[in-house]
Design a protein around this nucleic acid. Structure first.
Lengths: 199, 199
DNA sequence: GGATATGTCTACCAAATGGTAGACAGCCTT
DNA sequence: AAGGCTGTCTACCATTTGGTAGACATATCC
């Protein structure tokens, strides 16, 4: 294996993300991941000492990517808070289009054993704090509807990710998770959030 | 086993709901359910031919209960659409307080294999249709913000259930799923939806 | 060129899982 | 009283799972 190719470890992480995301962490066996990568299970266990460790690594990857992408959106060009929020929404939806498994994994995050959930919170926490701070600021300026900034941030977050990770409700009304479907949805959501957040 | 006690079948359903909801369908074994009920695994398999069938039965129970409770809320006393929506929100949150596993199971609904998801949709579909019809009507009357009624219904639904089933985001801001925490949350959500849905 | 390190493999294993076969005890009907 | 039905049990089983031990090949360093 020459050093020019994608290293095995990375390929394992990629395959694991896709499989965990689409079918759930517990339903996917190491064997399956190994098969997907074209390697033996023991090779997976060589790079990650246990399945738990692999799960942690995948979650960290996702969390880190999300944090980066949302963070970039939060301090986007525009000064208008609603434009900023829309940028965040776009940022959350973008990975959904490019990589549907990402959304599944966000859903998986809510059903982790407490130990793993804790490690994850540690990553996301600073981001949440920053958002709350920002919301609070804009509320003081009167540019966002006055309310408990923490709860509003959580509500907005839960709304966006709830929509993103709960395709069931949306599919029931004929919506399809295609790129164009997502754009339509995002536009509707934009109006929804705009109305909910402005004074 | 006299007929006065709770029949085994029901006790199995109850235990399965709790376990599936809190720990996820795949992570719970038949043995575990049986142990919870105080019976052997083979007794579980006597009442439900396979694990799949048990899962189906549990989901049907939950779906049926949700449909009834939401349906009742939809045609609640008040004529004000926002009061009605609030009644629905209350209806969704009530089981959350009384039986946290219910929420977990609602989350599980989004990660079912396609066959089971289909059977479930069949239950929920009429309810969704009714909601869409209602939204459409109120929009015509100008009492709700004009928009694609299907998408708005889905958004509202996803918002509520997203919030209800995604405690992660809320716990990050110090919110706790206690009865009083839920009340506080519901009040904030009420304002949120009111703003988002009114013209 | 030989030693060492790295990465992947073959060969196992113990535990758990969903599921089957069939015994058996109590109840109901005749 | 006898035979059948119902509900639960004991005893297995094949498969899958996460994980271990150690062989083997290739590359790197001295």
């Amino acid at each position: 294996m020459t050093t020019r190719e994608i290293p095995t470890r990375q390929r394992i992480l990629d395959a694991a993300l896709d499989l965990f995301g689409t079918r759930g962490v517990d339903s996917v066996s190491l064997d399956e991941i190994a098969r997907e990568v074209g390697v033996r299970k023991q090779t997976v266990l060589y790079w990650f000492a246990s399945k738990d460790e692999l799960v942690d690594a995948v979650l960290e990857t996702v969390a880190a990517e999300l944090v980066v992408v949302i963070d970039a959106a939060v301090r986007s060009a525009s000064d208008d808070p609603l434009e900023r929020i829309d940028a965040v929404v776009r940022a959350v939806f973008r990975p959904a289009v490019r990589r549907p498994a990402m959304l599944g994994l966000m859903r998986e995050m809510n059903r982790l054993p407490e130990a793993q959930a804790d490690r994850l919170r540690h990553h996301v926490r600073p981001l949440v704090d920053r958002c709350i701070e920002y919301f609070s600021l804009e509320m003081d300026k009167g540019r966002l509807r006055r309310a408990d900034p923490g709860l509003v941030a959580a509500l907005a977050y839960a709304t966006v990710t709830g929509i993103a990770t709960e395709p069931e409700a949306l599919r029931s009304v004929g919506w399809q998770p295609s790129a164009v479907g997502l754009r339509h949805l995002r536009e509707e959501l934009r109006g929804f959030l705009r109305a909910a957040l402005t004074p």
